[in-house]
Each structure stands twice: as C-alpha cells, then as structure tokens.
Simulated scan of single mutants.
Amino acid sequence: MNYIDRYGQFIANNFPHAGLEIFEVVETIGLNTNWEEPQSYLDWHNLGVLAIIDAENAPDLNTRHNHFYFASNCFQKSISYPPSSLHYIMLLDLMGEKTAGIVNTYNCLLQSVHSWLGKGEIIPCGLVFLPPKLRSELVSNLNCTNGYSQAGLMLGMLFYNCYSHKCLEIRWLELAVSLIPDFVLGLLKLGLEQIRRQQYEGL
C-alpha cells in the first residue's frame, strides 16, 4: 500500500461514508508531496502524519515507539510550518511530554502565525491527524484551502477540547483567541486568567 493509500485507509476507517471529494483532496496533497526524497516542510509534515497513524496501528510498543521517533524527526524538520507545530504538540502529548510540547513549539508557532495575521498569506494544506475524540472534525480540517486556516482550526479544537485544563498559560490563550476570535469560551478563559494574574489592562 503506497503512502497516500495508507492515509485514504485512515479516512475510510473513520468515515466509511466519506464522499469522493475528500479523497480527491487527499490525492492532490499526496501528488504534491515528495515521499521518497522529502525536502520541503510539506514533505516532512505529511510523512510525520503518516508515522503517527502507523504508530496508532502498531502491533507492539517497540514498533509504536519507532514510529513516534520517526514522526518526531519529521515534525522537527518542518516545525516552521504551523500545522506541523500543532502535530508536534499532539505527538509529544501522546509520548507523555506535554510540557516540552508547549515550550518547544510556542515561539515558532507564534512567530509564524502573527506574521500572517491580516496579510492574507497562503501556504499549502497538509494531511491531518486528530485524536479520536476530535476525529469527527477531520474532514473539515482537510477541506481548508490555506495551511494557516488549517492551523487555526486545529488550534481551536485542540486547545479547547484537549489542552485547556493542562496549559492555562496566558500566551496560549492569547494566541488561540487571536486565531479564533468568535470562541466566546476562549475569551472568557482569557479574561479569567488575566484577572487571576492581576493583569487588568485590556479587560
């Protein structure tokens, strides 16, 4: 089974009634990826996503660890690509290194996202892995037409659904709210955290 067929199987396993259009999106991403000789951030990102999927399906812990290690290398080589930063956070969370995930990815993610906000810059979208409880949103992520939009959508879902109780660092809240300003829950959390820290400016 080739690279893109493996991801197609991942889609089929989670969305047995997925329409043909989503497989066409995946095929387009696959055709734009140099799987055998990765060079661009998109190449490394997509290889990393497949490695996480392979880890999820691994028959034993040793094989799972090997896939995680390969995915980690891939995402580190594409860390300036915002979707890769977020996948790296997920990977480190799966490996039990949650604090490291926050520290190692925040600055790069913040710099790349803030340089884009308001400028309309477009970067290509990549393949997406989401944890099981968020997997119903996989298709909407794949349907994004801009990698920054894809990263913003992922950040909103991951932060509010998976990490909000673990990382109430105000800088993460600020980034999440700047990307998804309509999330009232995020605004409330940001306000409460600012009050807790006695940072009243802007309230």
Rank of each mutant, 00 (worst) to 15 (best):
Y148P: 07
S115W: 00
V128N: 05
I195S: 13
L92H: 07
S85M: 08
L127P: 07
T28A: 15
I52E: 07
W172R: 13
N32D: 08
Q150A: 11
N104L: 14
L117F: 10
T105V: 12
Q199F: 00
G191T: 09
I122D: 05
L168D: 12
S115Q: 15
K77Q: 09
T99Q: 10
S40A: 03
G101Y: 00
T63Y: 05
Y106V: 01
Y3P: 02
Q199K: 15
N146F: 11
V113W: 12
D54T: 05
M1H: 05
F70Y: 13
Y106D: 03
L31Q: 15
S40W: 01
R171L: 08
L188P: 00
G202K: 13
G8I: 05
W44F: 15
R196I: 01
L138M: 04
A176V: 09
Q199C: 01
I4P: 05
F23K: 14
L190C: 00
N34K: 03
V184W: 02
C162K: 14
W116R: 15
F70N: 10
V25G: 04
F183R: 15
P181D: 05
L20D: 10
I22G: 10
S115K: 15
R197E: 08
I195W: 07
F10L: 10
I52Q: 14
T63H: 07
Y3L: 07
N13H: 09
M157F: 06
I29N: 06
E174D: 11
I170Q: 01
M1A: 14
L31N: 02
W116T: 02
I102P: 00
L31E: 09
Y41N: 14
Q9E: 11
K77G: 04
A151P: 10
S72A: 14
G19I: 00
G186E: 03
N14G: 01
S84M: 09
H114W: 01
L203R: 04
N2H: 12
N141E: 05
E21R: 15
N57D: 14
C74L: 06
A100M: 11
V184N: 02
Y81V: 01
V128S: 06
T145F: 03
W44L: 08
P82H: 11
N104D: 09
V49E: 01
F129I: 04
R135W: 01
L168Y: 03
L188D: 13
N34R: 14
L94P: 01
L190A: 06
I52S: 08
I79W: 04
K119I: 02
E21F: 09
L190K: 11
C167E: 10
L86Q: 04
K119E: 07
D182Q: 12
K189W: 04
L94F: 01
H114S: 12
N32S: 14
L50I: 09
L158T: 04
D5L: 12
E97I: 04
D182A: 10
A12F: 02
L175G: 02
I22A: 03
R6V: 02
P181T: 03
